[in-house]
């Protein structure tokens, strides 16, 4: 797996969504997701509205539908959960195609299915329109702890390097007649993992030395991230998305104050 994983999600395009500041996109994605999760499961129309919004965003961002569909397969285990719930849930039951299904369970399964799918699609749109580096810059500007954004930055930088080392070690192992099948490989695999850790840790020490040699004293200089932060206009444009979602929620969400 390793290879290509580290930058597989970003879809290079020039679209208004791509050019939006990363911190705006992160906040928008989070707010949109929370709105979706907060929507009562019976509000089918509202979910339809959200789906249309996601679709519209995908079109504006020029993210291919096939790409979205393929990537959203990551959600498959939860689809299975959703399919199972009607059998497990308690409460009144209906007969459907000769099966006795729980009404509550059907709603529950639908709930997981629709919220999970919309959530994955929103996250995919975020990942497709924002490079990994920009996402970290965005988190940094949102005052995420520097310790975490920096660790993430180093992680992404060296993921490929480590995956390459792992691949080379595996080839070396197989070349000496190790049989990479089933349980028999587990020892070679795991001691390879131990070696990989040693290499990772020792590389960490060397990276630190190289950083120290260039004057590092524990903080990355702020000047590195000084380029264009979000403007008020970008924030306003971004805020429109969760606002529309909230309006959809209020209109079709089945709350008492529904007009």
């Amino acid at each position: 797996m390793g290879a290509g994983h580290a930058h597989a999600m970003y879809v290079h395009q020039h679209s208004p969504v791509h050019h939006l500041a990363p911190e705006v996109k992160i906040v928008v994605a989070l707010a949109f997701t929370i709105t979706v999760v907060a929507t009562p499961r019976e509000a089918v129309v509202a979910f339809g509205g959200y789906a249309l919004m996601v679709l519209a965003l995908a079109v504006v961002a020029r993210v291919p539908a096939a790409w979205l569909a393929k990537r959203s397969l990551i959600e498959l285990p939860f689809v299975a959960t959703a399919l199972l719930l009607p059998f497990f849930a308690s409460g009144p039951r209906v007969d459907l195609l000769g099966l006795s299904l729980s009404v509550d369970g059907l709603w529950g399964g639908w709930n997981i299915l629709v919220k999970g799918t919309l959530g994955v699609l929103i996250a995919l749109l975020l990942a497709a329109t924002t490079s990994a580096r920009d996402l970290l810059v965005g988190l940094d500007r949102l005052r995420a702890p520097q310790a975490m954004t920096q660790i993430a930055m180093f992680m992404l930088r060296y993921l490929e390097v480590l995956a390459d080392e792992a691949r080379r070690m595996r080839i070396a192992r197989v070349s000496r007649l190790d049989d990479p099948r089933f349980l028999w490989q587990i020892k070679g695999f795991a001691s390879g993992l131990g070696t990989l850790f040693l290499r990772a840790f020792e590389r960490g020490e060397r990276v630190y030395l190289a950083m120290q040699s260039r004057g590092y004293t524990g903080r990355l200089p702020a000047a590195l991230h000084a380029d264009s932060t979000a403007t008020a206009r970008q924030w306003a444009a971004g805020a429109a998305i969760p606002l529309v979602a909230v309006v959809v929620l209020l209109l079709f969400g089945g709350y008492p104050w529904k007009p």
């Binding site: 920096q150 660790i151 390097v161 630190y208």
Partner: peptide, 9 residues
């Protein structure tokens, strides 16, 4: 940052 980053990787 560098050490934990490598461990996370």
């Amino acid at each position: 940052a560098p050490m934990a980053g490598l461990v996370a990787a």
